[in-house]
Every structure is written in structure tokens, then in C-alpha cells.
């Protein structure tokens, strides 16, 4: 079976029509479904948060059969993810797409569990510390996209579980947990 790094690719990745946007409705629905699952799966294992439509993305081309997705097809599959709430366009031109292999709400739950597990219920952390600190090492939070993290933190903030405040330097923010 073909692999992309340590990611195991399904057989149909070598099926040429998989790389052409199918015009017939039923066929297309199935194709879109398979692509959505594959993109989410791949991003999750590879910790990829953002896909740039104009940049090379390993999944979007298959050198073995010499096929790659057209721009239209890329946009179609990512749009399908966006409409399901599993992705978001980062700009109006649809050039970059934020992939939410966990929904924002799920990310919030992960943070909540992380705080509980580490006994950080009443402590203060910077946003950077959550992303790359010692505590988050080995968890899914490690290396999380800043945009997604901030969204998840805001969800928790609205529930009164924490407070976000401006840090000493302009580009960093702090979080005061109160779980």
C-alpha cells in the first residue's frame, strides 16, 4: 500500500478519476465524501492546520499515476468541508483554508481537560505557553494553530471558565483559568 510519509493512503488514491471532479451527482457526492474524510484524516495525523490552495499540498497530487487536483476541484472539496463546519476560509479569495479536524467546541473541551489533567485550574498561562510549553508537550494542543486556539479560548471565556488579558508584550496574550 502506498504511503505519504507515515500516512497510509487508501487504494483508490491511485484511481485516476478520483482526481477529476466528477460531474454526475451521485458519483460526485461519493467522491467529495471520500476527499473530505481523507483530508481530515491526513491533516489530523500530520498536524496540518492550514491548506493553501496555491501551495503544494502532498495530498492533492499523486506522482505515481501523474494526476493532480485542479484548482476548481481543490476549492470544491475544501468548500464541502467548510459547509460542514470542518473548515474555514481564512480570506475572501478562498486561498487559504483552516482545517478543523476537531471542531472549535471540541478544541475547547480538549483545553478544558488539559487544564484539569495538569492541575492548572487557577493558574495563569500565556497563549504561547499553551501552544509550545512543557505542559502541552505530547498532547494534541502542542503546535496548535494560533487562530484555532484563540477561538477555543474565547468559547471557554464566554462560559466564564477563563479570562483572556493583554500580556506585557503586544503580541502575546495571557490566560487566567478559573475552572
Amino acid at each position: 500500500m502506498q504511503k505519504l510519509g507515515d500516512f497510509k493512503l487508501p487504494h483508490f488514491f491511485n484511481y485516476p478519476p478520483y482526481f477529476t471532479l466528477q460531474p454526475v451527482r451521485d458519483t460526485r457526492e461519493k467522491q467529495v465524501q471520500l476527499w473530505k474524510d481523507l483530508i481530515l484524516d491526513y491533516c489530523k495525523t500530520q498536524k496540518i492546520f492550514v491548506i493553501g490552495l496555491e501551495e503544494d499540498f502532498a495530498l492533492f497530487s499523486n506522482p505515481v499515476i501523474e494526476r493532480s487536483l485542479s484548482h476548481e476541484a481543490r476549492e470544491a472539496f475544501l468548500s464541502a468541508l467548510v459547509s460542514e463546519g470542518r473548515a474555514e476560509w481564512l480570506n475572501k479569495g478562498h486561498r487559504k483554508c483552516l482545517i478543523l479536524w476537531h471542531r472549535v467546541q471540541d478544541w475547547a473541551d480538549i483545553i478544558f481537560r488539559f487544564v484539569k489533567d495538569n492541575g492548572l485550574e487557577d493558574s495563569v498561562m500565556t497563549v504561547e505557553e499553551i501552544r509550545s510549553g512543557i505542559e502541552s508537550r505530547g498532547t494534541e494542543l502542542h503546535g496548535i494553530d494560533r487562530t484555532i486556539l484563540m477561538r477555543a479560548l474565547r468559547v471557554l471565556e464566554q462560559k466564564g471558565k477563563l479570562a483572556i488579558f493583554k500580556g506585557t508584550s503586544a503580541d502575546d496574550e495571557g490566560v487566567k483559568f478559573s475552572m
Binding site: P17, T20, Q22
Partner: peptide
């Protein structure tokens, strides 16, 4: 059938999509 459009041209393949388990 389903289609495959590539630099090699416009070709048709047997439709395997329904066979794949999601």
C-alpha cells in the same frame, strides 16, 4: 462510468466510487 481528465486526454473508467466503503 466516471471520467478522468488529464494531460493524457479525456478517458473513461469503470465507476468504482459506489464500491468504496466510506
Amino acid at each position: 462510468l466516471c471520467r478522468d481528465i488529464s494531460p493524457d486526454g479525456f478517458r473513461f473508467y469503470i465507476n468504482l466510487f459506489p464500491e468504496i466503503n466510506t
